[in-house]
Design a protein around this nucleic acid. Structure first.
Length: 477
RNA sequence: GGCGCCGUGGCCAAGUGGUAAGGCAGAGGACUGCAAAUCCUUUAUCCCCGGUUCGAAUCCGGGCGGCGCCUCCA
């Protein structure tokens, strides 16, 4: 029962051993808040959440930090186009991002540092690098990291740095780098930067931090020189994370990250999500269209994070049905009438086994797709047992329910589904009255009236289920 | 060009050496006033060819097909 994670740096599965026993310090590269987050972002953030939840579930003390990038080229450009400052521009997107997280059940993390709040620390960090000979200030007012001073550069991505010069289209001409591969730690302020409030004083004049810097500074500041896990989208492996390693290890003298994990980008309707294709789907839109947030969550965690995932409306619909099955199962168990003189059932055995299977599947590099399979297999077996037995003891029922809820602390599906289906008391009492009226109609064999009531409720997404114990109702999305 | 990934039933998706989890959809059945929910039954030569092995979806080689990164896109 040990956690195994795929470490990008090793390009293989490794047993997870944190620096300090029982504690895990995680840093995740969050969004750049220049626009609303899209579902691709959320595949990644939902994976972060799965890691967060599973680590806690496994008994670790977790310190989880996720940055929000509020100053970089994209932010500056967007603010400029909107005629506002970067602060004004990013504020609402930061807010809606956190709101989207709540909608999809992404747990709050310990800290959401923003680059603009750590300019001073970044300047100090650069000074350390300059002092140690890993960085130099250039004529153009920028400060660059010297790749040559860090022979291990390229180890994360597994590339030979010498190929960078020949092959890639490296930034050139307008910069005064000593080596084309060097990257900026500090950039001199342009007129545009000043206009949108993205310029600060520094020993090298007015300017702003390079994008890679914020993560190195904020992560080591809050979590220490060596992080247990660093997470991000696959696009960040190079150069972002490679550069973070270079900066951090040169500044601190310690290994930066023990385990790197990267999430594969998702597709939409079979194609890459991109501006040119205009196929961005924002979480906001889906929620406004009335899709169940739990269905979105289900779909985004239904395939392994390193595998392909093609996001489609059809898939979302299927996920919605799957979530409903889970909800129905939870309702069946929690509303089950138990009998303490009931004969022994298979529930305790099933409950114990499913949790073990679930854990070991999640321990296998956060295999959420496999874990869902384990969960749904449990649903079918328990339903069958309940059909066969009729009545079970309270303790057997509670064991099954406990197993279900235990697994959901990691998956968060019931959690999100229930949160989005809150019904007010007025509606609730109205439904109860209608059910009562229908019961009378049925008792007097007035099935026409009974069906009429069912229709009326159905129009409001309320479904009735008749059973031996009476009529239950539920809201479906 | 360099580095890398993927190809499992109608759709989605686990499994990575011992003869195929799970979800959705379809068909049939049980139950039901009708439904819903639930259960049962039912649908896979695991892209192709060759090799290793007692045994491969799983390992190796080749082929075909799809894709990613190498551009401050999660």
């Amino acid at each position: 029962m040990t956690l195994k994670v795929y470490n990008t740096a090793a390009r293989s599965l490794q047993e997870f051993v944190p620096l300090r026993e029982g504690e895990v310090r995680v840093y995740a590269c969050g969004p750049t808040i220049y626009n609303h987050a899209h579902i691709g972002n959320f595949r990644t953030f939902l994976f972060f959440d799965l890691v967060h939840r599973h680590l806690e579930y496994s008994g670790y003390g977790v310190q989880f930090v996720m940055n929000l990038t509020d100053v970089d080229d994209k932010v500056i450009q967007a603010a400029h186009e909107a005629g506002s400052t970067i602060e004004e521009h990013t504020k609402p997107f930061g807010d809606t991002f956190l709101a989207d997280c709540v909608s999809l059940g992404v747990w709050t993390v310990d800290s959401y540092p923003r680059a603009t709040m750590h300019i001073e620390q970044m300047v100090e960090f650069i000074e350390r690098l300059v002092d140690k000979g890993h960085a130099y200030s250039a004529e153009d007012g920028a400060v660059y990291f010297s790749i040559e001073s860090f022979p291990e550069y390229g180890k994360l991505k597994g590339i030979d740095t010498s190929t960078l010069i020949a092959g890639a289209r490296v930034e050139h001409d307008e910069y005064d780098k000593e080596d084309a591969r060097d990257f900026a730690l500090w950039k001199a302020a342009t007129e545009e930067d000043e206009e949108v409030g993205a310029a600060w004083d520094s020993p090298w004049g007015r300017g702003r931090p390079g994008w890679h810097l914020e993560c190195s500074v904020m992560s080591t500041m809050q979590l220490g020189d060596t992080l247990d896990m660093h997470l991000g989208g696959e696009d960040l492996v190079f150069p972002h994370h490679e550069n973070e390693i270079a900066q951090s290890e040169c500044a601190t003298g310690h290994p930066f990250v023990r385990y790197w994990m990267h999430v594969k980008h998702l597709f939409v309707e079979g194609r890459k999500m991109s501006k040119s294709l205009g196929n961005f789907i924002r979480v906001r839109e889906l929620l406004e269209e009335g899709y169940d947030p739990a269905a979105i969550r289900h779909l985004l965690i239904s395939s392994h994070y390193r595998g392909e995932l093609n996001f489609t409306r059809a898939g979302l619909k299927a996920s919605g049905v799957a979530v409903q099955r889970l909800m129905d199962f939870e309702a069946r168990l929690s509303q089950l009438e138990t009998a303490d003189d009931a004969e022994e059932s298979a529930l305790p055995g099933l409950a114990e086994k499913v949790v073990l299977d679930f854990r070991s599947t999640m321990d296998d590099d956060f295999n959420s797709a496999g874990a869902l399979g384990v969960l749904f297999g449990f649903v079918t077996k328990v339903n069958a047992e309940l059909d066969a037995k009729g009545r079970v003891s309270t303790s057997d029922r509670d064991l099954a329910l406990g197993a279900l809820r235990s697994m959901d602390t990691v998956l968060g599906l019931l959690e999100v589904a229930q949160a989005s289906r809150v019904i007010d008391d007025d509606l609730s009492s109205w439904v109860e009255r209608m059910i009562e009226e229908r019961a009378q109609a049925r008792a007097s064999k007035d099935f026409a009236r009974a069906d009429e009531i069912r229709e009326e409720l159905s129009a409001k997404n309320i479904v009735l289920e008749d059973s031996a114990e009476g009529t239950r109702w539920k809201v479906v999305n």
